[in-house]
Each structure stands twice: as C-alpha cells, then as structure tokens.
C-alpha cells in the first residue's frame, strides 16, 4: 500500500511543538503503524524550508503522500480533525478505505 509521507513544521521546542509531535505520533502509531514516514522540521533552524512551503502558522502538518496534498494546522489535539485532514476516516480501517477510493 501507499506509504504516508508526512512533514511536521514546528517553531522551536515549545510546549505546543512537543504536544503536536506527541499527538501526531500517537495517531500514526494507532492508524498507520509501519506505513508512514515522518519528518519534523524546526523553522527556526531551517527558515528557508518554511519559506519554500509558505508556512505561516505552526505547528503545521503537511501530508505529501498519498495525494492530495493536505495541510493541518494546530497542535493536533483534535484527533478527529487530524484524521479527516489525513483522509483517514476514523470509522473505516485502511483496507476498507482503499476499496472505497478505488
């Protein structure tokens, strides 16, 4: 199956950043175990990367793959919204979802 390629942009090691990382890892472990690649980018260290992606708000999660490209803003504490943003409906499991889209 398609792997999920995720990028999380944060600004420094703030509590908001830590919370976003923790929330994201929790969701990914539960829903996408072994099916995802996550890259965490600190815009204070690499501002040019934020410029390239036109990131304004942090934390911002970008789902590069599978398409379509999606942006999820916030500390990801609202997991329902996160799943929605990742095109992972919470009621369907991955298998059903794939069949759904085909």
């Amino acid at each position: 199956m398609n792997k999920f390629k995720l990028r999380l942009y944060i600004t420094g090691k703030t509590t908001k950043s830590e919370r976003a990382i923790a929330n994201l890892k929790k969701i990914c472990e539960k829903e996408l175990k072994g099916l995802y690649v996550l890259q965490v980018i600190d815009v204070l260290e690499s501002p040019q990367l934020a410029e390239d992606e036109k990131i304004l708000a942090t934390p911002t999660l970008i789902k590069d793959l599978p398409p379509p490209l999606k942006r999820i803003i916030g500390d990801l504490s609202n997991s329902e919204k996160v799943l929605l943003g990742l095109d992972l409906s919470p009621v369907l499991d991955n298998k059903e979802r794939r069949e759904d889209t085909q």
Binding site: K16, R19, L44, P47, A57, R71, G74, D75, N78, G85
Partner: peptide, 22 residues
C-alpha cells in the same frame, strides 16, 4: 486551491521566523 484543517492550538511563529530570516 489549497485549504487547511485546523486541529488544535497554533501560532504564527513560522511567519515571524521567516521575516526574521529574510
């Protein structure tokens, strides 16, 4: 053509970092 979903607290720290960087 790109929309975003808000899922929790955020700030505009990246914008500030980009301005400072530039």
């Amino acid at each position: 053509g790109e929309d975003h979903v808000i899922a929790g607290e955020y700030d505009l720290g990246a914008l500030l970092a980009r301005i400072e960087h530039a």
